[in-house]
Design a protein around this nucleic acid. Sequence first.
DNA 1: AATGCGGCCAACCGCAACTAC
DNA 2: GGTAGTTGCGGTTGGCCGCAT
Length: 488
Amino acid sequence: MCMTTECVDRMTSEVGIDSTSVKEANAGRNIREGSPLKKGPWIKAEDAILMDYVAKYGEGNWSSVHRRTGLARCGKSCRLRWANHLKPDLKKGAFTQEEEELIIEMHAKIGNKWARMAAEFPGRTDNDIKNFWNTRLKRQRRAEKHMLPLGVFFQEFSEDKQNKELATSSSANSDPHPLPINNVEIPTAENRNFEPSQQLYPPGLLNIGFSSFLDTPATSLRDQGLNSSWNTHSVRSTVHSSKRIRGSEAWFSDQNVDLSQAHHQYQNDGSLFTQSLGFYSLYTRNLTSNYHPSSAGDIPGIHASSSEPKLKGKLELPSFQTPMTSWDSPSSVPSIESSNTFIQSPPNEYTDSCSLSPQSSDLLHAILYGSQTPKASRNNLHQETSRDVGPDSCPVLREIRWGTNPDAITPSGHTITSVFSEYTPSSGGSLEDHQSIAPLMGENGCNVNQEMDNFTPTAGNDDTSNHDLFSETDMYFSPTDWPHDKME
DNA sequence: AATGCGGCCAACCGCAACTAC
DNA sequence: GGTAGTTGCGGTTGGCCGCAT
């Protein structure tokens, strides 16, 4: 490798760069044995050289930077430096509230596709977004460490409740209302269909609860006696690790149809996937205003105290992404680690293609790639199409279109409202009572219909019946019902 | 003042996709 | 079609800084 003084002089003169600046830039390289290239932080002189180079030759040809300028950096490093720091109109500084919300929303939809996200954020780089996200993740993980396992709470709750009931059982005027545990009210004996081995709520509802818990600082949870939570059986979910679905592949935010939280269970050669209904909706519903963690008040039977401080400003990680991969093990709170495993798993070809109809794939392309640079679009389009699998390849594909229609039918033959009437302890039964639920089903008037093939009614008595009420649902969402005026 | 810890950020690494030959 | 070089992406690491103890 020729990098003598003469070489530098000759090369820099070709590019019109002051050779002394190159020598200065290359001084003190902390390079590996035998490597002529510098690593580590860039200095101003190096930046100046790179900027001169780009001004002269334009972006690209990064590998020739070293050759043409003598800058002791590899092309890769130069590209990164340019893209992340030197490029004009880069936006520096903290992310705005809107940006944060959009990042979280997009991450819920497309996962760790930082470059794609960056395409939606003029002036922001994928690295910026990635760093932002990882920082939040760390914070969330740390908060989670302070949370006790789920089973602990339930056990304590059950024991505590039993004790209280014993103490009050002789009283004819026992309070018909739920006994508050600190700020959280728990269903009372009046709703005695609540049993440890039985799922009381449709999974999504429970997940909403966890969402709330996870979004709440751990200390706050401890203070509320919510450092652990409901019956772990209730939130059990069966997931085959190799068949995890990135609900994030759906990008329907503009539709206000919260599909990513829909409770999926794809069954394919014995593999099960369950994604719970409800996480995302409670979050996105609040995106338009200041974010409030999905309050426990949204959960039938769990009422947040009005005095509970509402979180504004900084958003916490949306816990709707919790994959529940480890929930099979009792007494385990949905770990953020497992969540990460889920989130960061590479897109599964089968699920990618099966979770969305071809039409929705088109929609995805339109939304996702519309604003991208031609180059990025090319690459991404290639990546997408290379994975495209026709709908016929989906072995099991049942279509259920959820909607706000309260009479929409669930796989077990229940209407949406009847489901919540039946399976929620506070069985008010009015639509208003389920307003917090309705958005979960979509807000575009999507009808719920079903194809009953392969569907086995699960109104049985086993402890999975209620779970199966939803988990038996293999659904994908057809945008054919979507209003076209919202698809632009 | 010293130390530890967490947040933030820049940069590197490995891999995959793309392109040119 | 095969191969080498280039580019892009996502994961990870390490350093710096501020804050709390």
